[in-house]
Amino acid sequence: MFKKLDPLLHSELRLAIMSILINVDEADFVYLKAETEASSGNLSVQLEKLSEAKYIEIEKLFENNKPRTICRITEIGIEAMGNYIEALKDYIK
């Protein structure tokens, strides 16, 4: 019996965001946009979804009078990614 894949992570852009964030301490919006090649609007929506699920935390601040959005993965997000990868193993076997 295959384990169910987390629907929140089982989408190309959200998985890419989580995969980046699990490898780093933090990443800002500009970096995530460049790495995922997503549009600003789409990226914002997906970040919001991940944040609502408490998979990531978003910090909005001003640096040199410019707005900056910083994203970090949370403990819940790390656990969700772990479970997702575990479930993936079943499908790959």
């Binding site: 989408s11 190309e12 852009l13 890419a16 995969s19 997503a38 997906q46 993936l88």
Partner: peptide
């Protein structure tokens, strides 16, 4: 990159 559904191979590739 879009919000398309994935297959397991593609998921691993993204990670």
């Amino acid at each position: 990159m879009e919000t398309n559904e994935l297959n397991p191979e593609k998921s691993l590739q993204i990670i």
